[in-house]
């Protein structure tokens, strides 16, 4: 269980995190979503005690991270693939981590096998690809068999195999009753593996809801694509229910203001045959961009002003 309450972190005049409150409950994967620079990593660094909050609190199982008696057993942390000395081999890096908590070499070899690092275990971390670095980071997070995992952009740089592996891993970890907080700047990534999503922009909370709800919200806001040999009756039916319909080529209609369910039901009502029905891909991403868009633009304007 991770609880962040009214957390604010300022660096000089820059506010990285601004009154953020959210909870990551056990047994779920909580997605932590926001554009680059939204304050995700800063929040995670505050949660694990690397940075001190300007105000507010962050606790794990009701305790400040610094007060945990055995942090590696309580929380598995992967903040950045570059949290390793490039001159040290993967095995020695994990061994040194394990030694701080008296964890055996056998367990080190176990997580190396679990993360598919065996072929690279005795190579220096500086020679690793981004994907291998991510696997090493995840291996370190799993080392203490912790009840809580905090993973910052774990799928970044992973090959498709690795992405699938991480999705399954975090689902399994949550199914075992663990708390998983997983950040990403990709909405569709979280839609595939998270139960809840906490969305932030410019350090502020934008949304905190079950993935399903956000998906539905974005589908309602997005465009539904339907292909039918009977465009006229379906268009009439949909317009009557308040949707906007734009005819496309080949009997395709783009419908806004109605969900996939709405369109399917409307087609049955008017007897139109449906050959194809779905959301236009990217609508989920669009919903996310709508939420975070203002935040990103503001930041870009800041950057232009700052560049002088």
């Amino acid at each position: 269980m991770i609880e962040v309450e009214a957390l604010t972190k300022r660096y000089g005049s820059t506010t990285a995190v601004d009154g953020l409150t959210f909870t990551a409950p056990p047994g779920t994967v909580t997605g932590f979503l926001g554009p680059n620079g939204a304050g995700k990593s800063t929040t995670m660094r505050v949660v694990v005690g690397l940075e001190r909050p300007t105000s507010g609190t962050a606790t794990i199982h009701g305790r400040r991270y610094a007060d945990l008696p055995a942090p590696l057993h309580a929380v598995g942390v992967m903040l950045d693939a570059r949290s390793v000395h490039p001159g040290r081999t993967a095995y020695k890096h994990l061994l040194a981590m394990a030694q701080t908590h008296g964890i055996s070499k056998a367990r080190v070899r176990e997580v190396i096998a679990q993360t598919g690092l065996e072929p690279a275990a005795h190579r220096r971390a500086g020679t690793f690809s981004l994907g291998m670095g991510q696997r090493l980071g995840i291996a370190g997070a799993l080392l203490g068999d912790p009840a809580t995992l905090i993973l910052d952009e774990p799928v970044n740089g992973l090959d498709p195999d690795g992405v699938l592996w991480v999705r399954r891993l975090v689902r399994d970890l949550a199914a075992e009753g663990r708390t998983v907080l997983l950040s990403s700047h990709l909405m569709h990534e979280l839609a595939l593996c998270a139960d809840r999503v906490v969305i932030i922009g410019r350090g502020r909370l934008l949304a905190d809801a079950p993935v399903k709800e956000i998906v539905e919200r974005s589908e309602r806001a997005g465009t539904v694509r339907v292909r039918t040999p009977d465009p006229e009756p379906l268009t009439r039916e949909l317009v009557a229910s308040g949707a906007q319909v734009t005819p496309q080529e080949g009997g395709v209609l783009h419908v806004r203001g109605a969900s996939v369910d709405d369109v399917g039901t409307a087609a049955r009502r008017c007897g139109a045959t449906v050959l194809e029905l779905g959301t236009e891909s990217g609508s989920l991403e669009e919903a996310y961009l709508q939420l975070t868009g203002d935040a990103v633009e503001y930041r870009a304007a800041d950057a232009r002003g700052g560049a002088r």
């Binding site: 269980m1 409950p25 056990p26 047994g27 779920t28 199982h61 945990l68 008696p69 055995a70 942090p71 590696l72 057993h73 309580a74 701080t100 908590h101 008296g102 912790p146 009840a147 809580t148 949550a174 199914a175 075992e176 009753g177 663990r178 708390t179 139960d195």
Partner: peptide, 21 residues
């Protein structure tokens, strides 16, 4: 998925395991 399965790991975190002596 559900919080109901959380007991083993939630409980284990509070039991003493060796820390960074």
């Amino acid at each position: 998925m559900s919080a109901a399965t959380a007991t083993p790991h939630g409980a284990r975190a509070t039991t003493a395991r060796p820390g960074p002596a």
